[in-house]
Design a protein around this nucleic acid. Structure first.
Lengths: 200, 200
DNA sequence: CGTTAGTTTGAGGCAGATCAACTTTGGTGG
DNA sequence: CCACCAAAGTTGATCTGCCTCAAACTAACG
């Protein structure tokens, strides 16, 4: 775990309290920090010229973010937005160089993380060809709700994660409720039958 | 450049001659080597259960491959296939550990490469939502032909790179020829008007 | 040449995006 | 604590891009 490895080091930096919808950094900005989540949830979203959003990654407790751009030596390719109350530690990028220099195992862990994320992104790419929108939405419901059960995911977020639209998500959720596979609770929902949802 | 950095080290390993369609490694296999291309072209393809192929990455002279799986400590998530006559150097993975241990700058360069590829994959994901199949095919034609002009790309390869079908590629190419934007030459083609193709 | 992998073209169908109108939810401020 | 209202969700109707299937053609290599 990267966080545990560097927890002592990052404890020297102040913790910042953020609310839902607060922005850590904007697409196209130049990296100044690497961020660590002490507690909370952050989403990474890419926005195209004509306003289409794609939900790229989720970060939760002890996750690091901003590292991809930093190590690629690029501006941020996406925007990081808080999905809940979140406690963040910002490490100035100059300090990161110190860590990289002193701890080669840190680099190796970051590389492992990024290499894993690359496979995930490429498999999602392949997935889009292969599965119907309904299947992708079903999988997004499973992934988001099982992994992050405390968040009331909006239809829009689910759609942007599954490469679909909020209308299609609403329609499928109605269908899934009739089949007793999920149960809607206000704007939230719970999963009643994992297996049926997985093999939908 | 990673290759130049390690060229002396890898020169101790034999060069292997491969032909078009030869396979470097198969999806799901466990990594045993890291591969360096001395000369030639290799494509990385993911195949889903029901046989849909996605063209993930292209590797040319001096490129490294197999590193993602090695550093993620995963089996290969895709298959590497030669797109032309290719000279390959295979470095056993035990030897890689030596390099990583002795050369921290090597790790940093690999991390930069993988972090860059991650952005590219995620932007392609976002792209699929945003652009029509025609636009994506036009961009694939540009990318593949301008960057690797000596290859006669098949319609299938272009389709798998642009998340489309070989029929749609053929149709668009006919249309683009009528508009004098490209010119078909046997199975190959050349680009007559870059700008029009880019803004199609 | 003959063979086969690759290409082209047509016809048809449908998944799911889009647009629009209406309802519900849940936070907030009086 | 309730009333309000903006944001989120629902549902219907429509429309079309492009995928799929099929069949005929042709380039290129041995």
């Amino acid at each position: 775990m990267i966080y545990d490895q560097v927890s002592e080091f990052i404890s020297q930096f102040p913790v910042q309290q953020l609310e839902r919808n607060d922005i850590l950094y904007h697409q196209d900005d130049t990296p100044q920090f690497i961020y660590f989540i002490k507690k909370g949830l952050v989403g990474l979203f890419h926005i195209t010229e004509n306003g289409k959003e794609t939900f790229l990654r989720v970060f939760s407790d002890k996750a690091m973010l901003g590292h991809r751009s930093y190590f690629a030596e690029q501006n941020y390719h996406a925007t990081a937005i808080c999905l809940s109350k979140t406690e963040i530690i910002k490490v100035p990028k100059e300090k990161c160089e110190e860590v990289c220099a002193t701890s080669p195992s840190f680099l190796k862990m970051v590389l492992k993380r990024v290499a894993t994320d690359l496979a995930e992104a490429e498999l999602r790419l392949s997935h889009i060809q292969d599965k119907t929108a309904k299947q992708r939405i079903a999988e997004a419901l499973l992934f988001l709700k099982l992994k992050y059960p405390d968040i009331t995911w909006t239809r829009k977020e689910i759609a942007e994660y599954s490469s679909s639209t909020h209308e299609s998500v609403a329609r499928l959720m109605t269908e899934l409720e009739e089949l007793k596979i999920i149960k809607k609770i206000g704007r939230d929902f719970e999963i009643l039958d994992k297996d049926k949802l997985l093999h939908f």
